[in-house]
Design a protein around this nucleic acid. Structure first.
Length: 478
RNA sequence: GUCCCGUUCGUCUAGAGGUUAGGACACUGGCCUUUCACGCCGGUAACAGGGGUUCAAUUCCCCUACGGGACGCCA
């Protein structure tokens, strides 16, 4: 019967104001990982009690972000606004039970009250002047429903992350449950929904810490079981302040655009506030197996893109080429390279995994293989490596490769060796001009691999072009 | 202003009453090498400050400073 003790149920409850940013993703990740670790369920609930905020594109963007990160919820999305009538019933129940009352104060009155309180240096809060009102000021006077908070005592809970927190009840005020337009507010809705959905662990940002005692008071007033709470330290921007859209907190999906892998983003986020020995690199499975929200630290972290980059490079390296295929194709299309056969890409990817910190970088590095145009030489690379002295070896290399029937790493190597011997030069003197001729740059995978992947036709053509370049240079010199 | 939370290398973190305060990113010296990258070896760099408690405190307690969050008919 007591299902709550059998299954952990936690929820991620964003408000649909925009895309899922990195801070929100971290909260969602911690919910997801903790639930997976304990075989629990995750519920996605959209907190849209403020109707102005309900934007479908925002919901879609959040869903898309979570999907990319591999955190599709087990249940939901549910919309808080769908439960409005239930919320209002509960408010009515509280009025009947004398745990809530109608308040007729106007906004102006309240503003004035808060100003006075602030001027006196005390915490602004509703002074309860309507608590004992017996009749409305007029028949059609608008009113809100306020919670009648306990006047004495304190709220105590053992936060899974923050430890024991106590707040005196007289620090809190009579919060509004129902607005004057008859709609339920967030604090009412969360409590009712968390209860109705059987949520037994609330994982959320520390910015909700001060809501928690009020919500606990509500649970208690309704004689409902209070869930457990875990308040995560916030993620800060490089200026040390809470991450927000103003601080360049962009959609998690923009990380995908920038060539980051979902597993790397998760890996980066999980290490903010949590650690497991000296381990830095975690697979998705390891995170799900090891993460426990109770082990999360209490201090805020600052987003560091260098570390993300490093973790991403590890995930790229550790991935199977198949896992990188889709992302590479996306990035290639962005630089207008279309229709490369998948098998070809699978052959190419392993040569670039160690050399790419992002998939954007990989696409850029790989691109020379797939363009038909002859490469434009990077000036610095050409200046350093395209010397007239290389003219003869390069010419001869092109000749011998052309005469070589087999196109394999071994065959290519053999030809290279024969050139080195014939001209009595070191590898560097041959490989670098070849590299520039083939790629236009001074860097690429191993030279044999580079030729092999480029293919015979393009290799010969580009070598010949390099030879022409050197001939022209020689002509100028004389 | 009031309440709540925090403070170990620049950054993410480990640590525990007795450690040469550990690891990682970044930075940096070197090795490897056909380039780049990877990898390997090394270096710089931290317990916010002041009081207690204690034989001993970075670790426990208090205060201060600094930082953050919250004080809405937003969520």
């Amino acid at each position: 019967m007591d299902l709550k003790n059998m299954t952990l149920r936690t929820r991620f409850a964003p408000s649909p104001t925009g895309f899922l940013h990195i801070g929100g993703a971290r909260t969602a990740l911690f919910c997801h990982l903790h639930a997976r670790h304990y075989g629990g369920k995750t519920i996605l609930r959209i907190e849209d009690t403020d109707r102005e905020r309900h934007k479908q594109e925002a919901v879609d963007a959040i869903l898309a972000g979570m999907h990319w990160l591999g955190m599709d919820p087990d249940e939901g999305p549910f919309y808080q606004s769908d439960n409005a009538s239930r919320h209002l019933d509960v408010a009515e129940q509280l009025i009947v039970g004398e745990r809530a009352y109608r308040c007729y104060c106007t906004k102006d009155e309240l503003d004035q009250m808060r100003d006075e309180q602030r001027a006196k240096g005390i915490k602004p809060k509703y002074d309860g002047r309507c608590r004992n009102r017996t009749a409305p000021p007029s028949d059609d006077a608008p009113f809100v429903v306020r919670f009648l908070r306990p006047k004495v005592g304190e709220v105590v809970w053992d936060d899974k992350i923050q430890g024991e927190i106590r707040v005196r009840n007289d620090e809190l005020d009579d919060l509004i449950l129902v607005r004057s337009d008859g709609s339920p507010t967030y604090n009412l809705a969360v409590v009712v929904d968390d209860h109705d959905m059987g949520i037994n662990l609330v994982i959320r940002g520390e910015d909700h810490l001060s809501n928690t005692p009020r919500q606990i008071q509500l649970f208690e007033a309704l004689a409902w079981e209070v869930p457990e709470y875990a308040h995560m330290p916030l993620l800060h921007g490089s200026d040390g302040a809470k991450l927000s859209k103003r601080h360049g907190a962009v959609s998690v999906l923009s990380f995908r655009d920038d060539g980051f892998l979902a597993s790397a983003v998760n890996n980066y986020l999980v290490r903010l506030g949590w650690s497991h020995g000296d381990q830095e690199i975690f697979t998705q499975e390891e995170m799900e197996q090891l993460f426990d929200v109770c082990e999360v630290g209490r201090s805020a972290a600052i987003f560091d893109s260098d570390k993300l980059l490093w973790i991403n490079s590890h995930h790229i390296r550790d991935a199977h080429p198949e896992e990188l295929l889709e992302e590479l194709i996306i990035q290639l299309e962005k630089i207008e390279i279309y229709g490369v056969e998948r098998d070809k890409l699978l052959e190419v990817i392993p040569e670039f995994q160690e050399r790419s910190k992002t998939m954007v970088e990989m696409a850029a590095k790989v691109s020379f293989l797939f363009v038909d145009d002859l490469p434009v030489y990077d000036p610095a690379a050409a200046k350093k490596h395209m010397k007239v002295a290389s003219l003869a070896p390069l010419t001869e290399l092109a000749n011998r490769l052309e005469a070589q029937p087999e196109w394999s790493l071994a065959a290519i190597e053999k030809v290279f060796k024969s050139i080195l011997e014939a001209f009595d030069i070191k590898m560097g003197k041959l490989a670098q001009p070849v590299r520039v001729s083939l790629t236009g740059t001074a860097t690429s995978p191993g030279i044999y691999e580079t030729l092999y992947l480029l293919g015979r036709e393009k290799t010969i053509a580009r070598l010949r072009h390099g030879v022409e370049f050197l001939e022209e240079k020689a002509a100028f010199a004389t």
